[in-house]
Design a protein around this nucleic acid. Structure first.
Lengths: 222, 222
DNA sequence: TCGCTTTTTATGATATTCTAACATATATAA
DNA sequence: TTATATATGTTAGAATATCATAAAAAGCGA
């Protein structure tokens, strides 16, 4: 079932929305300001975010932008009547819809439904880690925003590493997952592909870490 | 430029919207009730319809339904606050969006922009991508505006690729979708049809991308 | 049957992957 | 620290897989 993140500094509003959302069968999570929302998005996937425009710490617009940079989650803005419309629903901010306060919960619920269904139709599977972006449907890789051509094996290898980010993978595991056959121990094949892959992903080559005596892993260092 | 039909029984409102819409560069047409709107839609194409919910002769909801039966034109409903939300933006009526009266003209203009762009991406019987236009009802293809004759298989193949734009399709998937039977692996059939199709779509041949080791995909590069 | 589309088969061109040899880096123990 | 063993990186050419095209064979409707 779809999961909704509700971001508002007023606990009453959060509770109200939460109750309705749960009644509609959604999972809910709450955040009381933009910063918290952003950090939650890093760790968790939501199907839609309900975000108040005016909040302490980090306002809704800035939070929306930041989240857009991390993941492709649709955002519905809540705002007081009178806000500049362009800003609210503007294309720069990237909000998908907005609802004016005071709102009717039923209206909000209907908007949620629409936004989720719209998004699920158009979203292509994209993975974004660090400066790497992978469109798994189109098999296209962007390094620092620039489209990068990879061969089939390079792509498969990168995807496997990225999907197991932070986990050390032995050559055996890699061969089995990417090549689909058994590993002969004196084989330089994986090493060679790793080198090849590194040479094609520019600066991101450092994200592929050699773990001596074990294998390789994909890692984003902060 | 996009053409908008404004349907409201109050001339003042029509004039107001008209003025703003023209200022934004849209062509406008007016109707004072639902019946008139429906008959206008029979004779003319609009990119979006702004429709008041409450009107004499034929109310906005019914008019919306009728028009949906004739053509696929998106509708933005105007309504007094307090209307049942479900009815307004409900999935039965088929309205694409709604705006509550009294509305800010700027808000309405922004909604128009969004609805038009959304619709142009999803419109049904005519598909337009890059320099290719496919009329799925007449099975006619236009390349750079010029009618192009394709054989049945070529057409089916093109349509399948275009409908899955940006997605890499394996030969297996293509065979199953376009030919409708199981895939024999040593077959160059798909390759051959791709070549054939490419040879008939002129410049657009580049939009059909070979993904070595995987399959083919249709792609518009920017 | 004729003329067309579609499928199959064959072939050459090209891109990718593998192999093996060697170079370099890192760890360990003397 | 230095020598040694071991692991990893690099390179270039061979082997292989994949693709585009052509040509032949088969289907199919008029």
């Amino acid at each position: 079932m779809a999961k909704i993140l509700i971001v508002d500094d007023e606990p009453d509003i959060r509770t109200l929305i939460c109750r309705y959302a749960k009644h509609e069968g959604y999972d809910t999570a709450e955040a009381s300001d933009g910063l918290e929302a952003v950090s939650m998005c890093r760790n968790e996937d939501f199907d839609v975010i309900i975000m108040d425009a005016m909040m302490p710490e980090l306002d809704g617009f800035s939070a929306c932008k930041k989240i857009r940079g991390i993941k492709d989650i649709p955002v519905i803005m809540l705002s007081a009547r009178g806000e500049e419309y362009d800003k609210l629903f503007g294309f720069e901010t990237g909000a998908d819809d907005y609802v004016v306060k005071p709102f009717s919960p039923r209206e909000l619920m209907a908007r949620i439904k629409v936004v989720i269904s719209r998004h699920s139709r158009t979203a292509s599977d994209k993975i974004k880690v660090g400066n790497i972006e992978i469109d798994t449907l189109g098999r296209v890789v962007y390094i620092e925003g620039k489209r990068t051509e990879l061969t089939a094996k390079e792509y498969d290898l990168l995807l496997y590493l990225v999907r197991n980010m932070g986990i050390v993978l032995t050559r055996e595991q890699i061969i089995e997952a990417v090549w689909g056959y058994e590993y002969f121990s004196a084989d330089r094949t994986v090493d060679w592909q790793i080198k090849q892959l590194r040479s094609h992903i520019g600066k991101c080559r450092d994200n592929i870490v050699t773990v001596r005596g074990v294998g390789y892993k994909f890692e984003i260092r902060k």
